[in-house]
């Protein structure tokens, strides 16, 4: 049934992910782990075609974008790794446009799924999704999407710590969190509240459940400036190093790059003068 279940009841479970854009390092472990799990799990296989050819392509349920962000007040831009998958919206148009009932939203936990045995592969659901979360499987002729690892999270054959989505299990930096975002007391809800978690394109009114945690602000605004030389404290050791630095550079206090070049020049000069001294000595002997 592609009409949506009533998810406005108090205590409605809304399972979803919270993704920390501050700690994600873009390692692709979540994407590869997702692909590996879901090619043998629900709606398997998750196909690739011409996988080793020039025109290779494939269905992925989780993709990691990289964005460059020019921050206000910062001369240097920063890179934000951005994992993107189904957000398990509360009012998903991908479900309501489905003509067959293959796409549905589960009343018990809000997970949005595609029944691969009923999908006719019309792709209209992918048109209705503003997040590009659904990917068509050319081999099977049906639509694929994130299942929130519905075949892991309730699997009692697994150890409790493994009853989480494969992407969350795989993340080496703990940037992915799984839980009930409908429960304000849950760890994920608390995390969203503490870190100012946000929804993607809230103005489109699909009411996504997943949340993203914004990158933390930079510590200071001087990241572009070259490393400043440590100020001398006047100790004997300090004077020794300053003397050595001066000896090598010919002149102290310049920028490191310039110093490097002048060091070579200084060595050349010293070799030259030593050679000259040896020559003049031998001349004097004569």
């Amino acid at each position: 049934m592609t009409t949506l279940p009533d998810t406005t009841r108090p205590g409605q479970k809304k399972l979803g992910l919270v993704i920390d854009l501050d700690t994600c390092v873009g390692c692709q472990a979540c994407a590869t782990s997702c692909k590996e799990w879901n090619t043998q799990g629900y709606s398997a296989p998750l196909n690739d075609w011409d996988a080793r050819g020039a025109d290779h392509s494939g269905s992925w349920l989780n993709r990691i974008h990289g964005y460059e962000v020019k921050e206000k007040g910062q001369a240097q831009s920063r890179i934000v790794n951005f994992p993107r998958s189904c957000l398990h919206c509360e009012t998903p148009a991908c479900v309501t446009v489905c003509p067959t009932g293959a796409s549905y939203k589960r009343a018990e936990d809000g997970i949005v799924l595609v029944n691969p045995d009923m999908c006719i592969g019309c792709k209209l659901c992918s048109w209705a999704c503003p997040y590009g979360a659904r990917e068509y499987d050319e081999v099977q002729g049906v639509m694929k999407k994130c299942t929130l690892c519905v075949d892991r999270i309730y699997n009692e054959n697994f150890l409790p710590e493994d009853r989480i989505p494969a992407c969350v299990r795989a993340c080496p930096t703990g940037a992915r969190h799984f839980g009930d975002l409908g429960d304000p007391a849950s760890a994920v809800s608390q995390l969203v509240a503490a870190r100012g978690g946000f929804a993607l394109l809230p103005e489109m009114d699909y009411k996504p459940v997943n949340r993203y945690l914004p990158p933390r602000p930079r510590r200071d605004a001087t990241t572009l400036a070259p490393e400043a030389l440590p100020r001398g404290d006047g100790s004997a050791m300090d004077r020794l190093f300053q003397w050595a630095d001066g000896l090598l550079a010919g002149h102290a206090g310049t920028a490191p790059a310039a110093r490097k070049v002048s060091r070579v020049a200084a060595i050349k000069r010293r070799v030259k003068s030593a050679v000259a001294a040896v020559k003049s000595k031998s001349r004097g002997k004569k």
């Binding site: 974008h65 964005y67 962000v69 020019k70 048109w127 503003p130 990158p215």
Partner: peptide, 30 residues
């Protein structure tokens, strides 16, 4: 792009790295 990624809250956004090694379904279709 700023609104879609939600990164507009920290600055101006541009694409740095694509999430694939060859053109994918979303790009072909949409």
């Amino acid at each position: 792009m700023e609104a879609a990624t939600g990164l507009g809250r920290i600055g101006q956004v541009s694409q740095w790295e694509v999430p694939h090694t060859a053109i994918n379904f979303v790009q072909k279709e949409m």
